[in-house]
Design a protein around this nucleic acid. Sequence first.
DNA 1: TTAATATATGAGCAATTATTCATATGTTGA
DNA 2: TCAACATATGAATAATTGCTCATATATTAA
Lengths: 117, 117
Amino acid sequence: MEKCDPVCEGTSPEIADQVKAELLEDRSAVSIADLFKALGDPTRIKIIHALSLHELCVHDLTIVLGMGQSAVSHQLRYLRNLRIVKRRKEGKTVYYSLDDNHIEQLFVLTRQHLEHD
Amino acid sequence: MEKCDPVCEGTSPEIADQVKAELLEDRSAVSIADLFKALGDPTRIKIIHALSLHELCVHDLTIVLGMGQSAVSHQLRYLRNLRIVKRRKEGKTVYYSLDDNHIEQLFVLTRQHLEHD
DNA sequence: TTAATATATGAGCAATTATTCATATGTTGA
DNA sequence: TCAACATATGAATAATTGCTCATATATTAA
């Protein structure tokens, strides 16, 4: 962190101070980033997309994704900790589905953003 | 990747196949994940939030964020490569602002999601 | 109980990443 | 041209992360 006494001429220091005062707190920024981080991996994106199409058990997800069972389970735990997916047990099998439709909205909005460009 | 001939009883194999057929392609999943990944870091979240409040030069951002100039510059380049922020040069100083209001929408939606819970 | 199936999880490893340090580029004024 | 300022960037490093392997837990059927 360097000295910043001679604020660059271009911007008034009041604006920087004002923005600094209004800026998100650390924990808020971390919370928001954590949620986006969860969506920032292709495997998890595919899992979320698959579950937006249909509730699926872990085994079916391994088929759909073409991945090992362990990797899928790890990612599902990750997503479950963030309450992005939830599970429902039925005998031996565990069915996963999206826990919240906000996630789907983020999805739709993001795809729009990408197509728009 | 293990054998998956005896599909788990719980789900019909047709559903897994159907979901697999509709699932996002690799490159789409990667594109979407890349965008979310850009939002998956507290520093970048703060940068985006700050710029949603006001156009700012790099130096002011270092003040607002309380971070080194180099770190800020690196993150700005990252965000600029993804067209999340854009720059405007004026003499020595470079002003950054959000390139697209879709990002702000994602922001709002995400904060709603977090507050909701 | 034993075997088979479905899922979960800890440890370890390779790849990625956010920051720092040092330095380069570009701009302005003296 | 030279010095000061504003920003950019390459290299190095520490921390994080996604996957695999081996194994544990849980459920069902024989």
